[in-house]
Write a protein that binds this DNA or RNA. Structure first.
Lengths: 111, 111
DNA sequence: TAATTATGTATTGATAAGTTATGTATATTC
DNA sequence: GAATATACATAACTTATCAATACATAATTA
C-alpha cells in the first residue's frame, strides 16, 4: 500500500465539493486548497486532476472560462446547475463512505 | 463515478484492521463482517478480497490454516507479528485520511 | 423434488483511476 | 543564472477493483 493511493475514487467528489463551496476555481488553486485544508496530507497530482476536470467538462458537470493574468492563462471551472445537483449526491455518498470507514476503524466512538 | 469505487486503496487497511480486532478470520467471514458493520454500505467482492489476502500472505503479513467444517474447507487468516506492526501504521494512515476527507466534506465540524 | 439461496474458496479479463515523467511557458527569488 | 513557484496539459504505465465464471456443499423454499 501507498499512503497516497488511499483516495483513489474519492477525488471526484472532493473536487466537486470544493467547487461548490468556493464557486469559480482554477486547477492549480484546487491542488493548493486541498493541500492547505488537509495540512499537506492530501496532495493532488496534475496527472490526476486535469484529466478529471476535462472529463467533468465533457459531461457537463462544470463549465470553463479562460482568463489572462499577466501573461499567463488560467482556466476557471464552475459547476453547472446539473453539476451542483450531482455534487450533492456524490458528497452525500462520500459522507456515508467516511462514516463506514469510521465504523470499521473506530468501532467504539463512531455510531 | 460509482459508489462502490470509493474505497479503492482502503481495502487493505480495512481487512487488516478487522483481523487485528478479531484474531483468526476466514474470507467469507470478512466480507460478511464488513457488510454488517457498515450496515450494507460496503460490500467486498471476492475478486478484490482473495487476491489481497493471498498477497498479504506472500508478504508475510498474515499466516493461514485450513480447517474442515463438515465437508467444506475454510482458510483462516491471522496477522503475523510483522503484520500487526504493519497494521498499526496503515490504520493510522487511514485515520489521518478519514480526517482529511472530513476536513474537506465537513469543514465546519471537523477540526 | 427441483430450484434457489447461502456458504466457501478461487481465478480471469477488463476497466478506470491513479502515478510518474515529460513538455511548455512565465514570474519570482536567491 | 539557477532554482522555485505558478499554470496548463498529455502519454505511458501500474494496479486495485469489478463482473463474471468456476467449483462444491448445505440449507431453504416453492
Amino acid at each position: 500500500m501507498n499512503k497516497s493511493t488511499l483516495y483513489k475514487g474519492c477525488l471526484e467528489p472532493i473536487i466537486m465539493r470544493l467547487l461548490k463551496d468556493n464557486g469559480r476555481m482554477y486547477g492549480y488553486q484546487l491542488t493548493q486548497m486541498v493541500k492547505e485544508i488537509t495540512k499537506g496530507e492530501l496532495q493532488i497530482t496534475e496527472g490526476a486532476l486535469y484529466p478529471l476536470l476535462h472529463r467533468l467538462e465533457e459531461q457537463g458537470v462544470v463549465e470553463t472560462e479562460m482568463e489572462n493574468i499577466g501573461n499567463r492563462m488560467r482556466k476557471y471551472y464552475t459547476l453547472t446547475k446539473a453539476g451542483k445537483k450531482q455534487t450533492a449526491v456524490y458528497v452525500d455518498e462520500l459522507r456515508t463512505f467516511i462514516q463506514s470507514l469510521n465504523l470499521i476503524v473506530n468501532p467504539k466512538t463512531a455510531g
